[in-house]
Design a protein around this nucleic acid. Structure first.
Lengths: 249, 249
DNA sequence: GGGATCTATTGATTTAGGTCAATATTCCGG
DNA sequence: CCGGAATATTGACCTAAATCAATAGATCCC
């Protein structure tokens, strides 16, 4: 069943329309400059790239691109939050990732020929993204082999991280999948506790973890009653991650 | 629970030992030459790379490398079959991928610093792999930006494919996960039927799909009795993939 | 080729988690 | 700040799949 009405049915209208040119001297570009894909670029290459990029504002639930749509740009999140999902043949909406400010995304399939997006991307709240032309970036890669190394490192990292996501999904019971998901949200693994914010509404976290929202809710209530997590809206406080791991065997 | 005794307990002995030098004029290298990572290389660069590589024979269940082990090589499968898996804190063995002749693997995390393997790799039967030094390959990438583009395309493809694996795992019931897994094994998607061979023993396919071997067996028996698949050992014949997709909703 | 050891199947039973339904809470625009 | 819509929680019930157990096939190795 569908956890949530899909963006596909809500928004059948064109995407990628209203854009703003960048001056090359914008606030919020420091984060981009520090991103692994860009921090090795020379000043002029970086300038050149952002002069060819555009800033795009997205409203709540606005669709950025569709699965299989030709892909000419990749994106950097300046503010807000997005999610990546796929629709299968029966129209079921499968959330696969969430994207936070400072993340770069949609890069994964753009080196294919023809380049097409591998999934849908929509804003979960009002967001601002930078759209970077793939072609401009690729041309830059030719100039300096350091750039290519940085890109390879980034892509390799991305593949490992998906591999790790896959590992969680081979965990056979819902409680343990949820526990492992929470542990991964902690900034320094299980080393110490802390507060984490769910990157998606609860019903989408449930879908991401292949369980029903009701099951998610019950497991969380149970962890709460055992004093393992403290819940406040979408913020969870995990005092003792080691104990959490123990009970998940 | 553990589907199978883990390789970790079976083989605590060193790996990567007995190797054979290559002459640069071996049989079985055409497949390597045609691989996406190598088909753009110049003849001399290719020669140079394989002269620095070594052929490695692996016995049934022999471990090739361990998770978190420093990674100086990546691999190309010449014959046999391998599997990639991870061990979690409780020692549970999670099969995540299988590797066939003609595949290149272990490339995903070797661009990290320090380079470490992201999982275990073991031979499922006696196999032959080529071990290629990462450093030699990286040096080559610097020489020609076409090489880097090929590598990026390959890595991007890999990330998309893991993304797709993840999508299957968000399917909430065991039967539908299995059906989607089978459909993906068909060479041309659901376009037409055909015979597929399970790339892993049944109990490992079950683990890969987050279900018990008993459940796997029962689902397959049920599909068989409905005339949807014909089963012969590890070979399955799927006459009508469309019908299979339909019943999975 | 025959015994030993993995691997797969089938049955009986239990349980985790899905489904349906009702209520509560949060979010968001006016 | 209010009201409606979306999201989340809780309960009762039921089904899919896990578990336990026993048997049957494969595969390996001497």
């Amino acid at each position: 069943m569908v956890a949530m009405q899909s963006a596909e049915t809500r928004y059948a209208k064109p995407v990628l329309v209203a854009t703003n040119k960048l001056t090359g001297d914008e606030s919020g570009l420091e984060a981009l400059r520090n991103h692994a894909l860009f921090n090795t670029l020379s000043g002029s290459d970086f300038q050149n790239l952002i002069l060819q990029s555009r800033r795009l504002r997205l409203g709540h639930h606005q669709l950025l691109y569709r699965q299989d749509m030709p892909a000419h740009h990749f994106f950097f999140v300046m503010s807000g939050r997005l999610r990546l999902y796929r629709l299968d043949s029966s129209g079921i909406d499968r959330t696969l990732d969430s994207i936070a400010p400072g993340d770069c995304f949609a890069e994964v399939m753009i080196y294919a020929d023809p380049a097409r997006y591998a999934c849908y991307a929509e804003a979960l709240k009002s967001s601002e993204v930078l759209m970077i032309p793939v072609k401009a970036y690729q041309e830059m890669l030719d100039k300096n082999s350091d750039y290519a190394h940085a890109a390879l490192r980034h892509y390799a990292q991305r593949a490992v991280s998906r591999f790790h996501d896959l590992e969680i999904m081979t965990v056979q019971n819902a409680r343990d999948r949820l526990i492992r998901y929470l542990i991964d949200l902690l900034p320094n693994g299980a080393a110490e506790g802390g507060e984490v914010e769910l990157p998606l509404p609860k019903c989408l976290v449930a879908s991401r973890l292949a369980m029903q929202p009701e099951t998610f809710s019950r497991i969380l209530a149970d962890l709460k009653s055992n004093g393992l997590v403290r819940v406040n809206r979408s913020k969870l406080f995990i005092s003792d991650p080691k104990r959490l791991i123990e009970i998940s065997q």
